[in-house]
Design a protein around this nucleic acid. Structure first.
Length: 700
DNA sequence: GAGCACTGC
């Protein structure tokens, strides 16, 4: 039986003595009380009721209502404001309505951005309900593949990526009077770029004597000073939330094995707490979660008499949708739900009924090394902000408890904030978009958190190799090819592949390939059924590599009607496959608008591979005499990823789509190419590389 | 020789 987990006596915490809040210029408290309803951006919920009075009463009961007048007055006087509000303050649903009611919708549309699609859609639905209007009229939303807005729309919810794309065709954001950047504390790449874009638009509109652009940054409790400083000392307003109190318990001593500690904690809670209280455990990845699920189920079989049964549910993004949905269903009466999740349950998925959160303090995260072009996926400590976010998941319906499997001293040593994504990702795509917006000097663009010069330089070099850049009057600008590349919602290298495809008579095929590569994998590989998967997949496998294999799968899917049954039988994720078809249609439209000829190679894999060789020549690896591979670009030792159809093969020369460092450095999505094609594609590049390799050999 | 956190256009 599990031994004692070792938690010290409870430490009570309420909103206020929890996460650091930064400098607060004005403190506003909730007016009234009572109402328990809180908005949940991630879940579609109907508004308070069908009766207008009920809606109005509920709106007035929210903490933000007391701040309404001051907020509007401030925004009339100033161009920017920062609004800090905890969960339940009502800021996301109410502020856009206040702005509209305050007349800000007369000069233009009020935009509200969200990092996630579901949030944009469900918020628009809620607010249009509260306004008792039809969705798409006064209140609407715009996300990729789905635009429910019209000329009448005054309040528009968008994903931050969508507003960014709109900014490419109009960097002054002329149709908008206000931009509300919500969930700013998440610091997604898109939000970070938007910070700069809206700030620039504000300045330019002022210079051109156009109507002002009002900007409101909305965030949870972090980064207050940073936001305020960036927007020229914008005032910060603080709103009280309606989060329930959460007890935070720390481990007594550092834990050597967080998995063991998690297991012990889960079963200690299970034996002590009423079975109606569900448990959410934060772990790092699929493999770990599946292994832990099995262990939990095994232990649950041998619990003492009188101990309630447990329902163990894994949760991670690549889990098939139907299995993800199981976490929302209530467990049978008398049975406890134990959800083992990645950080998907931190923000993207909100589960009701969670009373206990077990936080291992670990997360798997990607970092990017500009020197080698290598992405590193590694388990690391969470930040304090992230730990508080996890803790908050225990207090959504009532008071909760968070068990931190690390000591308070350890917690104090965690980084305050997670490093913003823009400082740990490949910037090629960001740079291409900024250049497409005609940002005068991308190298000195006013980022809130500047990426390192190495990162920027690596992106410039990458775009240059793709033929997207040129120098004009000492400034970087886009070539005609670069401008075309920016029109596609794709990684720049895939956009280039698509643009090259007519030359190889395989545009239809490349459309399919880049669509497949730009969404989550369509292949479903349950580890427990590995042999079955292997047998089924054999019929699609191509000795030419993963790209041609994927093409075969897509063809079979289309030719056989694309049914869900076919997907199930062939271990294909039908949801992702449907998305591929949507992406493909969107890309095809863009190609047609550019008058690209729609040509097909009719099953000839070689022309597809030639096309890939010509666009991805900077991502190649060569077989060494000892049977290993090194990249041509930086002589980095690499291996073919075990998921590749070429895992057991050793072609002399390959191009790859992605380099990922996990337990070692892997190439993912690998395609067999002829070395001659590569030299033909970029003779200067390979001459340079050859010389570097030779010189390197002489003086190591 | 043996494996993949999470979004988004």
């Amino acid at each position: 039986m599990p031994e004692e987990a070792g938690f010290p006596p409870a430490k009570r915490f309420r909103p206020g003595c929890g996460p650091p809040r930064g400098r607060v210029l004005m403190l506003l408290t909730a007016g009234g009380g009572g109402g328990r309803r809180r908005p949940q951006p991630a879940l579609a919920q109907p508004a308070a009721g069908v009766y207008p009075e009920a809606v109005e009463r509920q709106r007035r009961s929210l903490p933000i209502f007391a701040a309404r007048g001051q907020l509007l007055a401030q925004l009339r006087a100033l161009d920017s404001a920062v609004l800090i509000g905890e969960t339940g303050s009502g800021k996301t649903t109410q502020l856009p309505q206040y702005l509209y009611e305050g007349g800000f919708g007369r000069q233009g549309v009020i935009a509200v951005t969200q990092p996630r699609r579901v949030a944009a859609i469900s918020l628009a639905t809620r607010v249009s309900d509260e306004k008792r209007t039809e969705l798409g009229k006064l209140v609407g939303y715009t996300v990729r593949f789905d635009d429910v807005s019209s000329e009448d729309t005054r309040i528009k919810f968008l994903t931050d990526g969508m507003l960014l794309r709109e900014a490419i065709s109009d960097s002054l954001l002329r149709q908008y009077s206000c931009v509300v950047l919500d969930e700013a504390h998440e610091r997604t790449v898109h939000t970070d770029v938007l910070f700069g874009v809206v700030k620039t638009a504000q300045k330019r509109r002022k210079e051109l004597e156009k109507p002002p652009l009002k900007v409101v940054v909305m965030s949870a409790t972090m980064d207050v000073d940073l936001f305020s400083q960036y927007f020229d000392g914008a005032p910060v307003l603080y709103l009280e939330g309606r989060q329930h109190p959460i007890q935070v318990l720390y481990a007594k001593q550092p834990q050597q094995d967080y998995l063991h500690a998690a297991l012990v904690s889960v079963f200690q809670i299970h034996q002590e707490a009423p079975p109606s209280q569900d448990i959410l455990v934060f772990l790092t990845g699929q493999e770990e979660i599946e292994a832990m699920s099995k262990t939990c189920r095994d232990i649950a079989k041998h619990l003492p008499d009188g101990c309630p049964p447990v329902l163990v549910l894994p949760l991670y993004a690549s889990l098939p949708y139907a299995q993800q949905l199981r976490v929302f269903q209530a467990a049978p009466k008398g049975c406890r739900k134990v959800i083992l999740s990645t950080n998907i349950a931190e923000t993207s998925i909100t589960i009701t009924g969670i009373k206990h959160v077990v936080d291992t303090g670990m997360v798997k995260a990607k970092t990017y090394n500009p020197d080698s072009g290598l992405e590193v996926l590694a388990v690391q400590r969470v930040s304090k902000a992230q730990a508080w976010q996890r803790t908050g998941r225990a207090g959504r319906e009532g008071s909760g408890i968070c068990y931190r499997l690390y000591t308070e001293d350890e917690f104090e040593k965690f980084e305050k904030m997670t490093v913003p994504e823009i400082q740990r990702c490949n910037l090629a795509s960001v740079l291409l978009q900024l250049l497409a917006m005609k940002v005068p000097d991308v190298l000195t663009f006013d980022f809130m958190s500047k990426p390192s010069p190495d990162h920027v330089q690596a992106a410039v070099a990458q775009l240059d190799l793709l033929g997207a850049l040129e120098q004009k009057d000492g400034q970087l600008t886009l070539t005609p090819v670069g401008r075309k590349m920016a029109a596609f919602p794709l990684d720049p290298k895939f956009a280039k592949t698509l643009l090259l495809s007519p030359k190889f008579h395989c545009t239809e095929e490349i459309l399919t390939v880049v669509s497949l590569l730009s969404v989550d994998s369509v292949l479903y590989d349950p580890p427990s059924r590995r042999d079955e998967v292997q047998a089924v997949r054999r019929k699609f496998m191509s000795s030419e590599g993963d790209h041609i294999t994927l093409l075969n799968i897509y063809r079979a899917f289309k030719n056989l009607g694309g049914s869900k049954d076919w997907c199930r039988e062939n271990f294909v994720n039908s949801k992702n496959m449907a998305l591929v078809a949507e992406v493909r249609a969107q890309l095809r439209d863009i190609c047609l608008k550019m008058s690209m000829p729609m040509v097909s190679s009719r099953g000839d894999g070689e022309s597809v591979r030639r096309c890939l060789a010509h666009s991805l020549f900077m991502s190649t690896a060569e077989l060494q005499p000892d049977g290993t591979y090194v990249t041509t670009d930086s002589r980095q030792p690499v291996a073919i990823h075990p998921s590749s159809v070429l895992f057991h093969c050793r072609p002399a020369c390959v191009v790859y789509t992605e380099l990922l460092h996990t337990s070692r450095c892997y190439m993912r999505d690998v395609c067999v190419v002829d070395a001659d094609w590569l030299h033909e594609a970029a003779p200067d590049y390979f001459r340079r590389k050859l010389r570097a390799a030779r010189d390197g050999a002489h003086c190591p």
